[in-house]
Write a protein that binds this DNA or RNA. Sequence first.
DNA 1: ACAATAATTCGATAATTGTCAAATTCTAAA
DNA 2: TTTAGAATTTGACAATTATCGAATTATTGT
Lengths: 107, 107
Amino acid sequence: MKKDSRKPVDIKRMTRIFKALSNENRLELFLEILKVNETCFETECAECFITDIMETLSIGAPTVSHHMKELTGAGLVITERKGKFLTARINDELIRELSDIFYRDKS
Amino acid sequence: MKKDSRKPVDIKRMTRIFKALSNENRLELFLEILKVNETCFETECAECFITDIMETLSIGAPTVSHHMKELTGAGLVITERKGKFLTARINDELIRELSDIFYRDKS
DNA sequence: ACAATAATTCGATAATTGTCAAATTCTAAA
DNA sequence: TTTAGAATTTGACAATTATCGAATTATTGT
């Protein structure tokens, strides 16, 4: 309804986000976390154990560790150490921001 | 409202899309095309001359040409030759698809 | 204290990517 | 048909990235 109602975009920040999603294994990691995040409702569950996902992928632990850092560094996911394990959940706020960027007014 | 209502994602295709947006100059190209696309309404305008954008960026013509191919290859934009010039417009259908991926049900 | 498992760090290496200069093609106009 | 401007192709090079193996750190349970 409004023309030019789009927020200016921080290019560097955005490219970092897209770069984080531009690798197959990293995207799968992200989508898996997203899926877990969505399959739970009330209850503050939404926690995803990285070890479990790892077995699905065909890459080693060091690489997964590296990828997770890219995802968190971009702000896409938030991690927390649960004892021996690492858990991750989606940063909903950033995802909403991305959704806005791609949202198109059906004129 | 519905759980697990998300379409399965073609990983390779998606990474190609995100990769296309993961470079600063390419993202600026895309956002500029997006902006032009949005500032025109009725009338099938929505055409963006690449030469004009080029002057904004600090890269040469060969690089721009290469970047444009990445954007079109990913399906993000559609180009058309208008005489001596190249014009581009947003592939709204794909953008809508991306919007869906990031859309989160506010539960 | 020790063994086992998860995760991280640290090189190293192969693959990919961004960019350019030079040469080439395409198109419009003179 | 020659010229000029726009775009593309090609080949090269530097920079970045994805991945690994080995070594290290962290945490839990015995």
